[in-house]
């Protein structure tokens, strides 16, 4: 890459495991405080203060963890696929580590979205599970996460494992628009999107404001969990480098 400086400086800094370890160490406390504050406020607000739905009553309170988890599960997948692509194209080790760290978080959050959805479905639709397009595509998302994790677990060579996992996550990216538009393309049981970026929510403000707080809280939580896992992975893979040795002995 002689003479090519069209990419900003931080892009190259991100490629340095040590720089990444230091910067995430500085960012972690802020994200943790924000996540705890937003989630605690959002939970109390959602459970005790938001008004009940005129049709669904109090079971609608499940929305306040169902919707944020479904949004986060998809965002996390997109980050995993993008990080995987960056790793494939620029051979950046840290990008591979980010993709690796995304997989277990995304899988558990997809489980959360599916489980809370099933529990919400019982009093609302009368069934825990239906083979509705939205539910099925969300289940496929979970399987994609599990496939990526299985690939990492199956291969000893980190570079080969990262390549295979990145290709799988990039192919699986096609599932994201399918999840998004499933409620429009197929006439199904699942209700349409609660939140869109372009339109005003169809709910009163005292219902969607706690949802917004929860979504932001989930993203901050994701930041914390991702940075914790990324730092572990940096230490593990860079264990032979001088700075990690110093870090370990200085403790």
């Amino acid at each position: 890459m002689a003479g090519s400086n069209w990419l900003p400086r931080w892009f190259y800094q991100l490629a340095s495991p040590r720089w990444c370890y230091d910067i995430t160490g500085k960012l972690l406390p802020g994200f943790l405080i924000a996540a705890v504050l937003l989630l605690v406020a959002g939970l109390v607000w959602a459970l005790a203060f938001a008004p009940p739905d005129y049709q669904q009553g109090n079971s609608f309170r499940i929305m306040y963890i169902h919707v944020p988890s479904a949004i986060l599960a998809q965002s996390c997948y997109m980050l995993m696929a993008i990080a995987g692509a960056v790793g494939l194209i620029w051979k950046i080790k840290v990008a591979d580590m980010v993709a690796f760290a995304c997989a277990p978080i995304g899988a558990s959050i997809a489980v959360m979205a599916l489980a809370t959805g099933a529990i919400w479905g019982k009093p609302t639709w009368g069934s825990w599970w239906v083979w509705d397009a939205r539910l099925t595509s969300m289940l496929i998302l979970l399987f994609l996460y599990m496939g990526v994790m299985a690939l990492y677990a199956a291969m000893d060579n980190e570079t080969t494992a990262a390549k295979a996992a990145s290709v799988l996550s990039l192919v699986g990216l096609v599932n994201i628009p399918i999840i998004k538009y499933s409620v429009e393309w197929w006439n199904t049981l699942h209700q349409p999107a609660t939140f869109t970026l372009t339109e005003k929510p169809a709910m009163p403000v005292e219902m969607w404001l706690p949802l917004l707080v929860m979504v932001l809280g989930f993203y901050c939580f994701f930041g914390v969990s991702l940075m914790l896992r990324l730092r572990n992975e940096i230490i593990r893979r860079e264990r032979r480098s001088g700075w990690v040795r110093e870090l370990i002995t200085s403790r």
């Binding site: 939970l43 009553g57 499940i62 919400w120 019982k122 009093p123």
Partner: peptide, 11 residues
């Protein structure tokens, strides 16, 4: 709806 709500929040 308590069981449904509290179970999903616990999960």
């Amino acid at each position: 709806h308590g069981l449904y709500v509290w179970l999903s929040y616990a999960i």
